[in-house]
Design a protein around this nucleic acid. Structure first.
Lengths: 199, 199
DNA sequence: GTCTATACCAAGATAGAC
DNA sequence: GTCTATCTTGGTATAGAC
């Protein structure tokens, strides 16, 4: 009844909820949304099936919370862009941070990808996907403008798709992924885009 | 009882089986394996649920047939490599054909991607995935050697991942995908890889 | 707050009539 | 060969005891 006890409960509740979110993210990422059962999640979180519904209204709301939390995390990053004003430095930071982020948040990217390729599921998070995409593409376009690119939108799009492909491969085979070599190669490949057509 | 009738039956059977394979591919690609029910497939193929099991032992075998058929189709392509011996031409053909193939076999690539990102499902087709990957990477590596690349394996890997990323984006938003512009840009980007280090 | 038991339903698969 | 009816399982979600 005392306030202190109440706070204790709150803390336990929070911890347990986080636990559920963490294991659910992992399972959804690995087995897909439909491929994961509440029972599996409960087991891995070491609670009963029934208790799951004390923390989340249903399976769908659980997925929503996970996805939105992930989006927020990723949108908060500034990809080291504030470190310098030189476009070459910015590009280097962006590449570095994006690839670091990839290995730091593997499960989230895996889930993101699973959802992205399934139109029916994707619809639900469409807005968030576009929002993130817009933010990222715009940032890159500005950098390419700074580098004197003759088609910054296209180069930005291409670097974006390249990140996606790297993510896909990293997800499928996280070992056998020479991350530092890749950073270097990307930097070389994108740092010197074609200038205005030379005659 | 006559042979002719028997042939007719065979033909009808074949046609119907193909119909099932086609609609199942589409549904699996769009909604995932677990996200697609036998009832949905049967409905779209305009047959009863029960009849499905006359054609396929079970849902899993159906998926297997679809995936293996798709792999075979894709492995048969030669990506226009025999047209010329010049590495620059070969690279151009490869880029062209890969992107054409992407839009011609959208559903298959979509399924391929869905399966690739889900480790549990992936295991089953692992060997086939690697087989295709090896073939593709080796082909590209040879081309980059011909172009005088200082690290043909890495450049080949990077072009491969870039294709994957483009596929992912094409799948997610097939409209708003400037395919010809991309072909051109890829060609420019990969055709002149760094030579041996200049001192 | 947490668990067990259970209602309920959707989906895979089979049986049997035609 | 094809369909309808049915069995069976496994999964979501709820009820109710502690």
């Amino acid at each position: 009844m005392s306030p202190r006890t109440k706070q204790q409960f709150e803390k336990i509740r929070k911890t347990r909820k986080d636990k559920i979110l963490t294991v659910a993210l992992e399972l959804f990422a690995q087995n897909g949304y439909q491929g994961t059962s509440i029972a599996q999640i409960a087991k891995k979180a070491k609670i009963s099936k029934g208790l799951m519904y004390n923390y989340f209204k249903n399976k769908e709301k659980l997925l929503e919370e996970i996805v939105l939390e992930g989006f927020n995390k990723i949108m908060e990053l500034d990809y080291g862009l504030s470190k310098s004003d030189k476009p070459t430095d910015k590009l280097k930071s962006l590449i570095d941070e994006t690839l670091n982020n990839l290995s730091n948040n593997l499960h989230y990217w895996q889930l993101y990808t699973v959802l992205l390729v399934q139109p029916r599921v994707q619809k639900k998070f469409e807005k968030k996907f576009y929002q993130f995409r817009e933010f990222f593409i715009t940032t890159m376009t500005e950098i390419f403008k700074g580098l004197g690119s003759n088609n910054p939108e296209l180069h930005s799009f291409l670097l974006g798709t390249h990140f996606d492909g790297l993510a896909l491969n990293f997800i499928a085979t996280p070992d056998d992924f020479p991350i530092e070599e890749i950073k270097q190669a990307l930097y070389e490949q994108y740092c010197k885009p074609k200038r205005k057509k030379k005659k």
